[in-house]
Structures are given as structure tokens and as C-alpha cells.
Design a protein around this nucleic acid. Structure first.
Length: 485
RNA sequence: GGCGGCAUAGCCAAGUGGUAAGGCAGAGGACUGCAAAUCCUUUAUUCGACGGUUCAAAUCCGUCUGCCGCCUCCA
């Protein structure tokens, strides 16, 4: 049974969809004003895993996100980069789509853009005014927080509390300092026409208008970073429920922040790593693995040292996948005794893995289980007297399938290295020739010559690996790592 | 000031009433002519401090200490 932690209730709840077998989810995307940073990527990876797991469980998922492409920051950045706001938004939206591919994040089924949904937003604001939840002053429209009874239910605050400790600059147009803008007046030529004059949508209205347009007045999951709980999501609830008269979202999910030395990574503070600069040092898979090693609701401290550890840890899982594949290519011996015990353990681990993710998407625990599974497989195939036979062949094939299936839920790919160019050229037989010569030298206990061949190959970038099943070689990728992604 | 969260080995990190997952680093071992790679085994009588509830607590309650987030744009 899937349980999810719901910010709205502060509890883990049994997950039940509105429509059987279908999940409608909306995840707050980003303001496309710059390259994405690791904080954005954590959020995207987190909801990507949630989506993948829901799909694994058999749900049909409609996964929607957004690009906020209208606001002051975009205009400002556009001036800096000498682009039109549209061009700037396109540039960074496309950059984001390129980035998420590197992290193996599946794109949303639809990315909604504010600029393409202004009509819907105006319609929503109009209705809110008609229903007396909003008011217009000098071309600006504000939502009246006092008119919405449940205001504060998501963030667990009351209006009184908030007013007492308010740090909000006084705006004389607002009836209550906590009222928030639905429509913002801008100078002629810069905005969209509306019943209140030329302007832009306010800061929270887009997510409400766009999510409801695509998913309906009530949908299953709304996700985003914890830093969006207040005011962004609180305001979304207020305006959406005031508008529709229905519950907006059943499950509110919030991921923790990525920190640098304990402080939240954020654009405004300038302490962030863009995904692009990180990808120069580590692969998207390594970053992904690192981010998933911590439960999504907790903050995670980012550093290259930790990433290096994660990389090594991930390597262990990769090796097992490769060894498994190698073993499956052994000659099949005559049938031997079956080893059901091994496969039973595999199934046990598979179940534990699914249980971990069923408990509020506990990827950290799931990764732990994956390592357990790796241990089970390694122990089995590394036994001294291991031979491949008809019976364990089938079992191992199925094990490999399970292994890859589970990894896939986490978005981890353990692809077999495609035969590199070198292996397809003359170099391949040449290296084989050298290794044959080395083998001969070894047989004659001519260690000097054998080591010379190994060392010289190493110098050109070829690692020689002696295994119990013979000598192998591979191109060492140190240079490749230095060069970039 | 208000609201919320966190504190588990050298480091990272699961676990929320039944006697401490997993990873990194460390130690031992297997394999090897050596080396590398790989694999296996092992590493917390104890969960920030002090009290309390309970047959039983890292897990529940209280107090304290430290750190963080939100209250302003923010994933």
C-alpha cells in the first residue's frame, strides 16, 4: 500500500486517486530566467521518481509542469542579454529541457507557459472579483485573504499570527498587508490587455489557472519545493478554492532544499551550482544517485566530496550489472542442482525495494536495498565453484531483469558500454595481439616483459585487467573525465 | 518575534514502541607471479543533553542545547 506524506495534513496518508488507476499531478516548474541549478534538479528528479514509481504501480500518470515566462526578472534579464523576453524565456526553457535529459528525467507530459494562458488567468481573476474574493485598485487586482476562511491551512498559520510578525512592506492599495496580487499593472506596451488595463498576471495565479485548466478543479498531487509552501502554494489554494468552490488538491508534496555548507542554495543568494557546471565534473547519473540517497523531504548538503563518494558507491552497483552480464555469457554447463535459495533472496529484496518506495517514496532506503541485492548477486556469482548451467541461467536472467527494472524506477541506467570506436578498429586486434604476447611471457614467467606490455598499454590509456576468467582490457577514461561531461 | 523541521559511527544516511538498513573511509581475507581491478567478511551495547511514560524508547511526552527552513522572489 502506498503511503504519502501530505503537507496539508502533516501526516502520511494512504494514497487514493480521484479516478481509479489515474494520477493527475502538477509540479511547480521554474521561472525561465537563467540556467537551472542543482536545487531545481533535485526537485525535478524527485518528482520524476515519484512519477516513475506510480507508473510502476500501474497508474496512468498525467504529469504537468510549467515555465513561468512572464515577470520582472525575465524582463530585466532580457535587457541584460539583449534579447526579447520571449527569446530569453525560450532560451532557458530549452536549456532546462536539455539539462533534464542529462539527468535522465522524463519530460513532463506538458509544460504550460504563462504567456499562452493569459486568457484563462484573466477569466479566473474576473470570477474572483465577481465572487468578492478579489478587488481592483488602480489597475492592480488583489486577492483578499480575509475573504477566504481557510487561509493558512497549508502552512499552518493563522492570519493573526502572520500579521503580528509581518515583515511585509506596507502597500497602501492593499486592504490587508497579506493580500496578494492577481493582476499587476505595467506600463503601456509591456503587458497584456485586461478589463483592468494593461498588465501581467500576478505571482501565483498562473499555477492555479494552468493546473486546473489541464487537470480539473480537483486533482491528485501538487508538488514543489518546501520554500514554495508559503506564500506560493498557500495562495494557490486560496484563489483556486475560492474560484471553484472545490478542494484544489488532495496531496501536497514538498521536497527539501539543496544546501551549500548548511545554507539553502538559491539564486537570490548567489550560492548555487548550475546543473551545467556540475555536469562538467560528474555525470547526470552520479548526481541523480547522490540526490536520491537522501529522503526527499530532508535538506541535502551538496559538495563535490559527497558526490565523489556517491560516484564510488554507484560504481559498485554498476560493476554487478557488468559482472552479471559477463556471467550470463559463460558456456552453459550441464544441468546442476537448482539454487532456489538465491532466487528467493532476490525476490525478497525486490519486495523490500517496493516497500521502501511505498513508504513515502523512501529512495534512500530503496538504494540501501539495491545494495543488499547487489551483495546477494555478487556472493552468488563470485562463488569459487560457480558455473553457469541451464537452471541458474534462467534464474540469473530473471535476476538481471529485476535488477534493471528496479534501477529504472530510480531512473538509474546501467547500460553495457557500447563497443567503443577503438574496439571496432584495427586497435582491437592489435591489443589482443599484445595481450597474447604478454600471456606467453607470463607462461614463461618472463615477468619483466609481461609487465612492460602492461605498463606501456597503461601509458596509452589502456587498462589491463587480469581476472580469474582471463585477461581483459578497457580504455581508461581519466582523460575523458577531465575533458567534460 | 511567530510557525515548522532536524540532531543516529570518522563521514554520508535509513529506521518513528520490540532490541541499530545501506554507502564512503578503515581493518582483515579471497583472487594475482606482482600490481591494479573486483569480490567477501568486519566496524555504533548505542541514537545531541537531562528527566518522564512503558515489560520494552533512537522511536512517545517534557525541558534544555545546537543547526536549518519559512514568514520577501525562490525548486
Amino acid at each position: 500500500m502506498l503511503k504519502v506524506y501530505n503537507t496539508l495534513t502533516g501526516e502520511k496518508e494512504k494514497f487514493e486517486t480521484i479516478e481509479a488507476g489515474k494520477v493527475k499531478m502538477y509540479v511547480c516548474g521554474l521561472t525561465v530566467q537563467n540556467y537551472s541549478h542543482i536545487g531545481h534538479i533535485r526537485s525535478a528528479i524527485n518528482y520524476d521518481v515519484i512519477r516513475r514509481f506510480l507508473e510502476y504501480l500501474g497508474y496512468e500518470v498525467d504529469y504537468i509542469s510549467n515555465f513561468t515566462d512572464i515577470n520582472e526578472k525575465i524582463v530585466k534579464r532580457a535587457v541584460e542579454e539583449e534579447l526579447t523576453p520571449e527569446e530569453l524565456a525560450d532560451k532557458y526553457a530549452n536549456a532546462f529541457l536539455e539539462d533534464i535529459r542529462e539527468f535522465n528525467i522524463k519530460p513532463a507530459d506538458k509544460y504550460l507557459r504563462v504567456s499562452e494562458n493569459v486568457d484563462e488567468i484573466i477569466e479566473m481573476v474576473t470570477t474572483l472579483i465577481e465572487k468578492d474574493y478579489a478587488y481592483e485598485v488602480n489597475g492592480n487586482v488583489y486577492f483578499s485573504v480575509e475573504s477566504f476562511e481557510d487561509y493558512g491551512k497549508l502552512s499552518g498559520r493563522s492570519l493573526d499570527e502572520m500579521q503580528a510578525g509581518a515583515r511585509i512592506a506596507v502597500n497602501e492599495e492593499k486592504r490587508n498587508p497579506l493580500d496578494f496580487g492577481l493582476w499587476k499593472k505595467v506600463e503601456a506596451g509591456e503587458g497584456w490587455d485586461s478589463p483592468w488595463g494593461e498588465g501581467w498576471p500576478g505571482w501565483h495565479i498562473e499555477c492555479s489557472a494552468m493546473s486546473m485548466k489541464r487537470l480539473g478543479a480537483t486533482f491528485d498531487i501538487h508538488g514543489g519545493g518546501v520554500d514554495l509552501i508559503f506564500p506560493h502554494h498557500e495562495n494557490e489554494i486560496a484563489q483556486s478554492e475560492a474560484y471553484s468552490g472545490k478542494k484544489f488538491v488532495n496531496y501536497w508534496l514538498h521536497n527539501g532544499t539543496v544546501n551549500l555548507s548548511g545554507e539553502k542554495m538559491s539564486k537570490s543568494q548567489g550560492n548555487f551550482f548550475t546543473s551545467r557546471e556540475v555536469l562538467k565534473e560528474f555525470s547526470g547519473q552520479e548526481v541523480r544517485y547522490f540526490l536520491l540517497s537522501r529522503h526527499y523531504r530532508s535538506p541535502i548538503d551538496f559538495s563535490y566530496e559527497k558526490l565523489e563518494e556517491a560516484k564510488i558507491s554507484l560504481e559498485r552497483i554498476k560493476n554487478t550489472r557488468h559482472q552479471l552480464d559477463k556471467v550470463l555469457n559463460f558456456d552453459i554447463a550441464a544441468a546442476a542442482e537448482e539454487n532456489n535459495e538465491f532466487f528467493e533472496e532476490v525476490i525478497l529484496k525486490k519486495n523490500s525495494f517496493v516497500d521502501a518506495l511505498s513508504d513515502d517514496f523512501n529512495t534512500a532506503e530503496a538504494i540501501g536495498v539495491l545494495h543488499d541485492l547487489v551483495g546477494v548477486i555478487n556472493s552468488y556469482i563470485n562463488q569459487k565453484d560457480f558455473t553457469l548451467n541451464e537452471k541458474n541461467f534462467a534464474i540469473l536472467e530473471e535476476t538481471e531483469e529485476i535488477f534493471l527494472e528496479l534501477a529504472e524506477i530510480l531512473g538509474l541506467k546501467f547500460e553495457l558500454e557500447a563497443a567503443s570506436e577503438v574496439k571496432n578498429t584495427l586497435a582491437d586486434p592489435l591489443i589482443s595481439l599484445l595481450l597474447d604476447l604478454r600471456e606467453k611471457a607470463r607462461e614463461n614467467k618472463n615477468w619483466e616483459e609481461a609487465d612492460l606490455i602492461r605498463d606501456r598499454l597503461q601509458e596509452i590509456g589502456i587498462d589491463v585487467i587480469d581476472t580469474p576468467h582471463g585477461t581483459e582490457w578497457e580504455i581508461n577514461n581519466i582523460e575523458e573525465n577531465k575533458g567534460g561531461s
